[in-house]
Design a protein around this nucleic acid. Structure first.
Lengths: 107, 107
DNA sequence: AAAACAGGCAACCAAATGGTTCCATATCAG
DNA sequence: CTGATATGGAACCATTTGGTTGCCTGTTTT
């Protein structure tokens, strides 16, 4: 929901890597997400908490395990609402470049 | 260039608002960008420095003024290289939802 | 040349951030 | 029940971050 929370959550490389992992295989437990990382379990817990608060990850308790699922909706909201307006400008810039190249061809 | 620098730069609301301002009108001076903000000029300078380091803003000196221009390329790189893979998942989720709705209609 | 204007630099500060360690709780296996 | 396993909570710490203030440099304007 809150744009700032999402951007903040995405600002950290470890959290982005966690999202990458969940993207590769969804529904992993905390323990699985910790494997191979140079961090304590508690650090990962905190990161997942921040991702959960930003609604980028949702969780489900199953017995003593906690399964983590990626939620792409907030990312899409950002992409749609915020990034798209800069993309339009990028496309404009590209078309300007194209025109200038075409112009130099003629001159 | 560096993904992390860009994400970090985008993590702050004041900086995103500065990008918004430049998106609305490109090529503003530092003084113009400060107008109406509840921040000192030096704070804005710092933010613009971070945006510049992330290659989200480029500058041009003109006399005693410094003009700031938005550069959408890094944002597009993020959108293309990183966000798109989550978007695909979002579309998958939507199509799953659609299927499940269609299923429940039949049953 | 002097004053006014636009911006840069550096020291400093409080709060947030990313991480740790230690301990507690809940659940599963034997 | 007991022990191992999976996660949660809280205190604590160093560094980064976002902001300030004070002063300096360069460029116009008069």
């Amino acid at each position: 929901m809150d744009e700032d929370t999402v951007f903040r959550a995405l600002a950290d490389g470890s959290r982005r890597r966690l999202l990458d992992r969940l993207h590769a295989r969804n529904g992993q437990t905390l323990g699985e997400l910790c494997e191979g990382l140079e961090m304590t379990r508690q650090a990962v817990t905190k990161h997942l908490g921040i991702l959960e608060e930003a609604n980028l990850v949702s969780t489900r308790r199953q017995g003593r395990e906690k399964l983590h699922y990626i939620n792409p909706v907030p990312i899409n909201e950002i992409a749609d609402r915020w990034i798209s307006k800069f993309e339009r400008r990028a496309l404009d810039a590209l078309s300007d470049l194209k025109k200038s190249l075409e112009g130099s061809k003629d001159e």
